[in-house]
Structure formats: C-alpha cells, structure tokens
C-alpha cells in the first residue's frame, strides 16, 4: 500500500466515522444518564433519514432553493427528538427505570420493532434518494481521486462541531453540569433536589435528535431503505461498547477507529470488511472490559 492509497483509506475512514459517531454519541449519552440501552436508537436514525429524504424530495421537486437542505436536516432532527423521543421517554421509559435491565432492553427493542413497521407504513418499501445537499457542494480531487465535498469536508466538520459543542455544554454550562451530576450519582443528585425527571427527558430528547440528525446527514449520501436502522444500531452498539458506556469523547475515538479499520480492510482485505467493527470491539473488550475509556462503577449502597 503506497502513500496515495493510505491517504485515500484515511479519508474514506474519516467520512464514514463521522456518520457513525453522530448516532453512537446519542446512544452513549442516553446510556450514561438514563442507564438504558436504547435499541430504538437505530429507528431514530432511520426516521431522520426518511423525513429528510421524503420532505426534501418533495420541496426540491417543487423548485425550492437547494440551500434549504441543511435547515431541513435540523428540522428533521428536531422532529425526531421532540415528537418521537419526548413521548417515548415520558410515557414509556419513565415507567421502567426501576425495572431490571433485561426488561428495559425488551421494551426498547419492542419500540424499535414498532417503529420499523411505522416506517414501512408511512414511507413504503421502495428506496428513497435525495442528494441535493451533496450535489450542491460538488467534488474535490485529492490524489487523483474525486471525493464529494460533502463527505470529505462537511461530515467530519459537523461531527467535530457536535463533539466540541457537547463537551463544552456538559462541562462548562450549568445545565450540562447538572446532567453530569445526575449521571455520576442519581441518588445524591436527587437528594439535593435536582429534578432528575427533567434531566432524563432532556437527555433523551437530545440523544434522539442527534441520531435523527445523523440519519438526516446520511440520507444525502445513500439510498434510504427499510432496515437501515437495524444496521446502524448494531454498528453504534459496537462503537459504544468499544468506547465505554457513557463516554462521549471515547465514542468519537472508537468511531474513528472503527471507520478507519473498515476502510483499510476494504483496501487490504475486502473479505473482512464486515467483521472489522466487531473484531475491534472484541479485542478492546478482551483487554479492557469496561471499554477504552469506561469507568468501573462501584455501587454506593
């Protein structure tokens, strides 16, 4: 493998990692705060994609300006977070926080299955495609290979922005600190009067919106088809497990690892490509079961 191919593999890996990160970060945030593994997270991703592709397809066919693509993605993310995430947390998850983990997993899995059917009911089974955002930005040539500006530049930038914003929000602002406090020790937080219910709701809505945003961004690059939620949830689980549950910066690094691993596999050993994310996860967990950056939590009581 020469320098050109190496560079190309890196670019491909980074673009892929950016999308995976968007979904994984929401998942890990939700787990960190609510301590629930949200299987339905994949559905948030898929619905964000479907919303963007279908609404986008309609408005651009009607002649609206292409730059509306990005605001549309924000809108789709917001809809997923507020219309979908909010009620799910408030009406369903709130009732099962005290229940055992296996039950919680089953419940979020059931939500996932229901949402898969909802997608089919609303959008049918034919593939959707809406690439206006990507087409608007054209191509960049690097080392004799053409990349779309969207994938090479925009996606990684967006991912980094999200990462930095989240980090700043959580570590510097008041609300962020309260969320971190609840994450660290729910009992203490409640004992001093923090409204944990509000924190949970906010976190879930933000996490869901992030996944929806990931889907919205992805919809410009690929066909939106039934089952894309399922694929993404498995992959983001692998990222979150590798990083350590609840670790946000870790999720970025794990996503990068897995993205690069996959793209180098395509260049060197294409047959292994599908296995790579899970191989990486396995290797990391064998050495460090709590994940790369995970914290071994001791129970207080």
């Amino acid at each position: 493998m020469n320098a050109q191919l190496f560079a190309l593999a890196v670019f491909d890996g980074v673009a892929y990692a950016a999308l995976v990160f968007m979904v994984a970060v929401g998942l890990t945030l939700i787990f960190g705060v609510l301590r629930i593994l949200n299987v339905a997270h994949g559905s948030f991703y898929a619905i964000g994609a479907y919303l963007t592709a279908s609404i986008g397809g309609a408005i651009f066919a009607a002649g609206y300006a292409p730059w509306l693509a990005l605001p549309l993605m924000f809108l789709a993310a917001a809809i997923v977070g507020i219309v979908l995430g909010g009620p799910i947390e408030r009406l369903l998850l709130r009732r099962i926080y005290a229940k055992e983990d296996a039950l919680q997993l089953l419940v979020t899995f059931a939500v996932f299955m229901i949402l898969e059917d909802v997608q089919r009911l609303i959008w049918g089974t034919q593939p959707y495609f809406e690439a206006t955002a990507l087409q608007q930005l054209g191509n960049i040539e690097v080392f004799g290979v053409f990349y779309t500006t969207y994938q090479l530049v925009v996606l990684p930038l967006v991912a980094i922005t999200v990462l930095i914003s989240l980090r700043l929000f959580l570590r510097k602002t008041l609300s962020g600190k309260l969320i971190l406090a609840v994450t660290e020790d729910r009992e203490t937080a409640t004992a001093i009067g923090i409204d944990a219910d509000k924190v949970y709701l906010l976190t879930f809505v933000v996490g869901a919106a992030l996944a929806g945003f990931g889907g919205a961004l992805a919809s410009a690059t690929t066909s939106v088809v039934p089952g894309m939620g399922a694929d993404m949830i498995v992959l983001s689980f692998a990222v979150v497990a590798t990083a350590g549950l609840g670790q946000i910066e870790g999720a970025a690094i794990a996503a990068l690892l897995i993205g690069l691993g996959r793209s180098f596999a395509v260049y060197l050993m294409p047959e292994l490509q599908v296995l790579i994310p899970y191989l990486i996860m396995l290797l990391v967990l064998l050495v460090r079961p709590e994940g790369l950056f995970g914290v071994v939590r001791t129970r207080k009581i």
Binding site: Q4, L5, L8, A9, F11, D12, G13, A15, Y16, F143, G144, V145, F146, Y147, Q151, A218, T221, T222, S223, V225, G227, M228, D231, R262, S263, V266, Y267, P270, E271, Q273, V274
Partner: peptide, 20 residues
C-alpha cells in the same frame, strides 16, 4: 473483486479504490 455486504448503505471506500 468487491463483495460488499448486502444492504450496505455506503460504497465510498470501494469507489475510492476503483477511482484509483
């Protein structure tokens, strides 16, 4: 010879390779 996973949403890496 590329045989990407059935249902894969992204062929970016294969396409880069093919372009090269």
């Amino acid at each position: 010879e590329f045989f990407p996973k059935f249902g894969t949403p992204d062929f970016s890496t294969e396409i880069s390779r093919l372009q090269a």
